[in-house]
Each structure stands twice: as structure tokens, then as C-alpha cells.
Design a protein around this nucleic acid. Structure first.
Lengths: 185, 185
DNA sequence: GTCTATAATGCGATAGAC
DNA sequence: GTCTATCGCATTATAGAC
């Protein structure tokens, strides 16, 4: 179901699809899961845990800024979308408080991991003291998520993916690697 | 249908839903539209044109940077998502080349409008010459789109929306207003 | 635990009267 | 141009035999 979730989202994935893909009998599935919601809850818990775990790159070895760059520039499959972020636009999933809470929790984990590296980077003098760690963390996660959104819009358009020069690794993140100068208000 | 699109997306909106909401007969609808795809195409064309038109703020009066800030910080209904960007995560819509092309076109328009203001800002010395206009434009559009993604994840979690202090205007964009210091690589 | 059968509902679309 | 009726199919389950 994790595969189907990534391909089609929650609403568009039927228990029947799962049966076909897994070659499992209908009775078996309904014996182990109470229904679609349960199936989704377990899938989502596992998938978001994986996605959140990927942000452990931010805790690895090396200088804070180096770790930030490593995570920011790692290959991402833009056209397939973020396995967690995509769920956010599925109306049926968002209406299910239990399911969306799982997704939100994953983002909390990731944002907090970002925040802590940023605090380190500021302490080390790698980033300006004017940086507000939580806010920058939030913005960086947003850029990544927005990169996926744009990648999906453009990808289906069959344009040469500007950020996916060498498939199968599209990095919608080539952009933030550049220097971004923002107004100081 | 524009309303239903925003609420539920393409896949989850049935022609039947449209009939009920508009209180129009089924025969009438199928007389004026060939089917669901046609209905969607016309809706999407109109909606994305509106969304793209909102970026005309970037062409208004005032200094380039001022216009950028005006557009960036205008109120946005984070929890409802972007009427264009949300479509991007609808698997059924993305598979329809004609439909996703409409969405992609809207983003092209918006990104280009951003790019032109940025070029102006650089020329006026408001932004550093090291800025790559298209890349910054792309990143800014991504931040906005990502802000919607995060807002939807958090909103359903019933947290106090950090960026939506005063409803009904949630501005997932409070973040980019702060200074963002990026590594120069 | 796993199977097949079938329920009840909604989907996208069409038919054909008026 | 608009109406009601209906088609054929998919959906999310549930029933009850094995």
C-alpha cells in the first residue's frame, strides 16, 4: 500500500487495488485490517517514519552548514512528489484527523531537526545571528515541499526538467543551493 | 465546479457533485460540456487565470522590492491550499496532459513575473548582483507553495496556526519575511 | 486465516422523451 | 435545451462457507 499511496494518494487507493498488487485474498486483508482507514494509518505511520528518518542526515558528521547542504541537495524524485507532503493535498486524508496528525508529526520532527542544526550553525558563526532558527527551518522545509509541487507541474508538461538533468534523480533543490538574498525589511 | 475543485480536487469531484451544487439538471450539463474532462478543463483554465492574475501585484507601482514584499506577504488561505498548486498532487489530473499543462502554464506566468521584478531589483541595486533571477523566482514560488503544504498539515492538526494569527487570513509567508542567510557554497 | 459471493452505494456517461 | 431513467462498472465493505 505504501507504493500505491505514493503513486495515487489515499483517496484514489482502494483496498481492492491493494489486493491486486499484493496478490492477497480479500478475506485475509479484512482479517488483518479493520478497513481502509486502518490500512492507511499503518501505511502512513511507516512511510512518514521513513521520510522523517531521512532527515537524520542533519545530525550526521561534519560542520552544521555542511550537513544542511548535504540534506538539502540530496537527490529527490521531484515528479513522484514527497511521500509525506503529497498526503497533505488529499482532501479525504486531511479530513481524517488521525491520518493527517501522522503527517503533521513527521513534519514537526523534520522541522525540529532543521532548527537544531541551524542553532548550531549560528553558534558556530556559520550563519548570521539575525537568523531565527525555527523560521528558517520552516522556510527550508517549505522550499523543499514547494520544489516537489513545481516539479510535478512541470514534469507532466514533458519539459526538460531544469532540476533533473540526470534521471532518475531530480533535485528540485538546485535552486536553494544558490545564494538567496532577502530583503531585511 | 471551481469551488468543488478547491475543496476536493479533480478526482474527488464528480459531475454529480456539480449538478447538486449548481442545482442544474444532468441533461443540461451534458449538453454544454462533453464530460468530466471538459468540465475540468474549462474550470481549470478560468481558475488558473485568476491565480496568475494575482501575481500582477508584482508589476504594480512602487520599488521592485516593495512590490515583491507586497505580493509575498499578501494574505493567503493556507489551509485551503493554492487553487493551482493543489491540482499538482491530484494523480488523476496529473495524468491528463491537457489539464496539467494548464496548471504548468500558470506557474510559468507567475515565475516569469517574479523573474522580471527581480531583474529590476538587481538593476536598481536593491538586490545583490549575485542573485540569479530565474532561480530566486523559482525558489520564492516554491516557498509559497511549500507554505501551503505545511499549513494544510498543521491546520488539520488544530494547532494555533503560527502564520495565521488573524483568521481568515493565514499567511504561511510570515517566514520568508525574515532575513534568510544562505551559504554561498 | 483464507476463500468466494454479494451487498449497498456512487461513479461517469448515455438514451430518448418532451 | 432540459428532463428522467438507466447502463455498466468500481467502491468499501460484510457474510458465511471452508
Amino acid at each position: 500500500m505504501a507504493e500505491l499511496f505514493w503513486e495515487r494518494g489515499y483517496a484514489a487507493t482502494s483496498p481492492r487495488n491493494v489486493l491486486v498488487r499484493t496478490e492477497v485474498g480479500q478475506g485475509s486483508m479484512y482479517h488483518h485490517f479493520t478497513g481502509k482507514h486502518d490500512l492507511a494509518l499503518q501505511t502512513l505511520t511507516s512511510v512518514t517514519a521513513e521520510v522523517a528518518a531521512e532527515s537524520e542526515l542533519l545530525d550526521g558528521a561534519g560542520a552544521p552548514l555542511e550537513r544542511m547542504m548535504r540534506y538539502l541537495t540530496r537527490p529527490r524524485e521531484g515528479i513522484r512528489g514527497c511521500r509525506a507532503g503529497r498526503m497533505t493535498q488529499d482532501p479525504q486524508l486531511v479530513e481524517d484527523a488521525e491520518l493527517i496528525a501522522v503527517v503533521a508529526g513527521a513534519f514537526d520532527t523534520i522541522i525540529d531537526r532543521w532548527r537544531r542544526v541551524i542553532v548550531e550553525a549560528v553558534a558556530d558563526g556559520e550563519l548570521s545571528e539575525t537568523v531565527v532558527p525555527y523560521d528558517l527551518a520552516y522556510a527550508l522545509v517549505a522550499v523543499i515541499q514547494g520544489g516537489y509541487v513545481l516539479a510535478r507541474a512541470r514534469g507532466a508538461q514533458e519539459r526538460t526538467p531544469r532540476f533533473a538533468a540526470c534521471s532518475p534523480c531530480s533535485t528540485p533543490l538546485a535552486t536553494p543551493r544558490r545564494r538567496i538574498t532577502h530583503p531585511t525589511k
